[in-house]
Design a protein around this nucleic acid. Structure first.
Lengths: 356, 356
DNA sequence: CGATTCATAGCAAACGTTTGCCAAAAACCG
DNA sequence: CGGTTTTTGGCAAACGTTTGCTATGAATCG
């Protein structure tokens, strides 16, 4: 029974299932079944129980249930510690979309930051192995692994988002980065551009590899050599987008044979690049065309409005959740590992025919 | 014992405390104490147990512990469903800061979206009354309340952030909105401005009230009438910031006696306003000065770079967590209810002396 | 009408910890 | 060296559910 002893300092614990049972005049197990298994109990008894529960303001204890059934209803999202700042709204969008989908499925979302330190890895592993979470969606390239325990071997369903990890067996939801940027490059080629500046993210990064490959593919197809594109950046993290853009503008200024079009791998880079370039007296798009990646809403209000490749975060989030839940339910439909959601180039005024 | 029966289809559950106990040759209760209460057990036994635990890769089950001790280690953050999009990084910053502080205190962060529908309220209440969460940080103005149950009466420590709810008894962490914007207005007055346009958020909103009051206070102190400021907007949510800015630009164009300075209550508004104003042929800051609120990093790269009031989210998050944890620990230091973290105006080139 | 099924409800044993209480052993003291 | 305190370890009872099994009564059928 509810042990509200009215003793000051005692933690109050709300009404228990036993209280509901007593009030409804049935056994505790019947209450349990009435609340969870609507079919298993007589409609009349069920109504009596529902009424009693409502009257008492009964809410079942999630941990007790979790312990008993051996499952939690919490999903964790593993975010790299540094994914924040800039202009992009990817993270909030992802969180919102995922949370919404999860809740519809009866799950809750827990945030876990994966930094470079061992403590954060250990923490995530504790969450996984300690039964706190039921599954994970990761936006990080490496899986936590520390003294013997690895997230991969925790027996949890895992889905990777944004990064393609299908090669290590993880269901992944990604966009067609490569293709999207290839088409953007094609558009620039079509406008007459022949020399490009590419603002790179971290060298080894999946996205950077994919995106640069997209540029190269477009150049090849147009019969241009790889030397038609100059790389700038490649050392700093995407979090440093603004700084990458600034540095790239300086690189540009120092360049002999000037490119006429810039392909930036994030909106942050593009925005700060434009800002500095314009303060050097160059005009966009007259002197220089520019296109970037991320689809930040603010791009529409840059001067000039910035062409950017928009990633459908809403849809990606939904897909990731769908994959995860189907893995949880062992709905062993042979889901494909690599799920591609198409990105979309939003064309704005930052692209034009080159001057010369 | 670990019941890995090697039966296909059985959920694997990792090693149990009983397994560790057996391996170490002690009782299960000793293991529990060794792991949690380092003092209560002989150092030698403790080492033996630690070794056994590590060898087995043992991780204690969080739900079992939670059930037993009657407490969870999860904190939920209640976000209004619409706080996303735009240019501001407040939400990600808040999440990161809060999560970091929480983890240091041994807690985890769960996300809860509070929309306008009853379902989301019910969901949050279930989390609270079902014992899933131990406390809440809310960024929303109303507390969920549905058929009898109210978040306020869930017996959970709650801290409000960004919105001052100290008047209803909730410890709150806020910035000095009013003062900050008063000073910004003062700066504009000092530059010689005498007519202002104010871009408002939703009318009844706490922030809008505070911020507008700040403007008025500054005007009064300078001996100007309230009519020196024209309001625009006031109907749409902050989420609609870009649209508010656009509409305000049109309002401005239609105005007879033109203001020379604009005070925007979010960066989004300011950015889209500037964009449209400039496309009308007006120069900023020559024809029109502008200052806004939020401290979005991207403001530094607008043209011209935008003056904005930066809210110290990192510090606010830390403070909110500190308040919450001290409430949980019943460290009944009579913490003050209203905690103000000072915002800071970042002056950039969008402010200048008026032309005439 | 007796035998067999079916629907419904109850008992009690889990789930994996923590912790109050007691016993044994060790340490200390006069 | 006996008695007293202190340390250490173990037993078993919680925590609040779910669920397999069983018992009861009602319903069905031959």
């Amino acid at each position: 029974m509810s042990k509200n002893k009215d003793v000051l300092g005692e933690e109050q614990s709300g009404p228990l299932m036993a209280d509901v049972a007593k009030l409804a005049g049935v056994a505790i197990s019947t209450v349990s079944r009435a609340l969870a298994n609507p079919g298993r109990v007589n409609e009349k008894t069920r109504q009596k129980i529902d009424a009693a529960a409502k009257q008492l303001g009964y809410t079942p204890n999630a941990m007790a249930r979790g312990l008993r059934v051996g499952k939690s209803n919490i999903i964790m999202i593993v975010l790299p510690g540094s994914l924040y700042y800039g202009a992009s709204q990817v993270i909030p969008q992802v969180l919102q979309s995922i949370n919404k989908s999860l809740i519809q499925g009866g799950y809750n979302l827990m945030i876990a930051n994966l930094d470079r330190d061992e403590a954060s890895e250990r923490h995530i592993l504790d969450l996984a192995f300690g039964g706190t979470v039921r599954g994970a969606i990761i936006l990080s390239s490496k899986l936590p692994e520390v003294d013997g325990r690895s997230l991969a071997s925790a027996g949890l369903p895992i889905v990777s988002m944004l990064l393609d990890m299908s090669e290590v067996g993880l269901p992944s939801v990604v966009t067609n980065d490569r293709e999207a940027i290839r088409e953007a490059t094609n558009d620039l080629l079509g406008l007459g551009h022949r020399r490009f500046l590419y603002l790179a993210g971290p060298q080894e990064n999946y996205h950077d590899v994919e995106r640069f490959a997209g540029v190269i593919e477009a150049l090849r197809a147009a019969g241009l050599p790889e030397s038609a594109v100059v790389r700038s950046g490649g050392l700093l993290d995407y979090q440093q987008g603004f700084n990458i853009g600034l540095a790239a503008a300086d690189d540009f200024a120092a360049l002999g044979d000037k490119p006429t079009a810039v392909i930036a791998t994030s909106d942050d880079m593009a925005i700060s690049f434009m800002s500095r370039i314009q303060s050097m007296g160059l005009k966009i798009p007259e002197d220089l065309s520019i296109v970037s990646f991320d689809g930040s809403p603010v791009c529409a209000f840059c001067s000039p409005p910035l062409s950017t490749i928009e990633q459908p975060m809403e849809e990606m989030g939904q897909t990731a959740v769908a994959l995860l839940l189907s893995a949880i339910d062992r709905t062993d439909e042979p889901r494909q590992l690599r799920n591609v959601i198409r990105s979309r180039l939003i064309v704005r005024e930052s692209m034009a025919t080159p001057k010369v």
